[in-house]
Computed example of a mutant assay.
Amino acid sequence: MEWILVTLASLLAGFVDAIVGGGGLILVPALFAVFPTTHPATLFGINKSASVWGTAFAARQFSRRVEIDWRSLLPAAAAGFTGGFAGAWAVTVLPSEFLRKLLPIVLLCVLFYTLVRKDLGRDHAPTLTGRAQTLAACGIGLVLGFYDGFFGPGTGSFFVFLFVRVLGYDFLNASAAAKLLNTATNLAALILFALKGHVWWQYAAALAVANVLGSLLGTHLALKHGASFVRGVFILVVSALILKTGYDAFLR
């Protein structure tokens, strides 16, 4: 029964993650519910062992249909990998309670800004070029990479929002870029958790296959329906993240 529950959660998480990020909202709580006495780092490690495959397949699918600025995003992915590794190490030795309290407030600001700016992410019009774009993308990758390794919920959604707001991407291109960087941050965190012995490999294969299947379906829908569809899903996912993280931070 445990296998079935977490595998279904991984399938749905891959679907949501492929469109706009936020799959951790589904899989991580499912893992905590099914394995309540397990060390959090181990549950995060299981999550990464599945999500890294889903984001990687989504990045590959997006790259076939969306033009990706590899000169800016590959260095940003490397920065994300570095941040993710550092963040995953930090979560094994430092408390993350302050982020638990701060996260719903930050997400509420993101949602409010997105709703007020009706044209946000509608058109793909990068505001930076060359070295400036690379530096900005690397900064986003490094900071969110650390956050992903250290805490994690909503990382993909934060990537999408910052690529839209800071770099002027539309939601579809931002989602494509987010998948590349999120793959790097997931991989870094997975390596660290594996080195620390915080991955249950007996679950990894089944969860990875389910996550990839969900990812392929989500990517197909995002590419078929475009930026407006991704924006709508982004608003729904961020709203759900606010409710879930707010409950965890202040009501539990």
Rank of each mutant, 00 (worst) to 15 (best):
E2C: 00
W3H: 14
L5S: 02
L8M: 01
S10M: 07
S10D: 06
L11V: 09
L11N: 06
A18Y: 11
I19G: 06
G21T: 12
G22C: 03
V28W: 01
P29M: 07
F32P: 09
A33Q: 13
A33K: 15
T38P: 04
T38R: 01
L43F: 02
F44H: 06
S49E: 02
A50H: 09
V52A: 05
V52P: 04
W53P: 14
T55Y: 00
F57D: 03
A58W: 03
A59M: 13
R60A: 14
Q61E: 15
F62Q: 12
V66R: 05
V66Q: 01
V66P: 12
D69P: 04
W70T: 13
R71W: 03
R71N: 00
R71A: 06
L73V: 14
L74V: 15
P75V: 01
A76E: 07
G80C: 01
F81G: 09
T82Y: 06
G83W: 07
F85D: 03
A86S: 12
A88L: 12
A90E: 15
A90K: 14
L94Q: 11
P95I: 06
S96E: 14
S96M: 13
E97D: 13
F98S: 13
L102Y: 00
V106Y: 10
V106L: 14
L107G: 04
L107H: 14
L108R: 15
C109T: 15
C109P: 07
C109R: 11
Y113W: 09
Y113I: 15
L115G: 12
K118G: 12
G121L: 03
A125L: 15
A125D: 11
T127V: 12
T127M: 05
R131W: 12
R131Q: 08
Q133D: 02
Q133N: 07
C138I: 13
I140M: 04
I140N: 01
V143Q: 11
L144W: 02
F150W: 03
T155E: 05
T155Y: 05
F161E: 02
L162Y: 06
L162E: 05
V166D: 03
Y169S: 10
L172H: 08
N173I: 07
N173C: 10
A174W: 09
A176Q: 10
A177K: 11
A177L: 09
A178Y: 01
L180F: 04
T183Q: 03
A184V: 10
L190D: 02
F193M: 09
F193W: 14
F193L: 15
F193N: 02
A194I: 13
A194L: 08
A194V: 08
V199I: 13
V199Q: 01
Q202W: 14
Y203M: 12
A206S: 07
A208K: 02
N211F: 06
V212N: 05
S215Q: 09
T219W: 08
H220Y: 10
L221A: 06
G226V: 14
S228Q: 13
F229D: 05
R231F: 00
G232M: 09
G232L: 09
V233P: 14
L236H: 05
S239P: 13
A240I: 07
L243V: 15
L243F: 12
K244C: 00
A249M: 02
F250A: 04
R252Q: 07
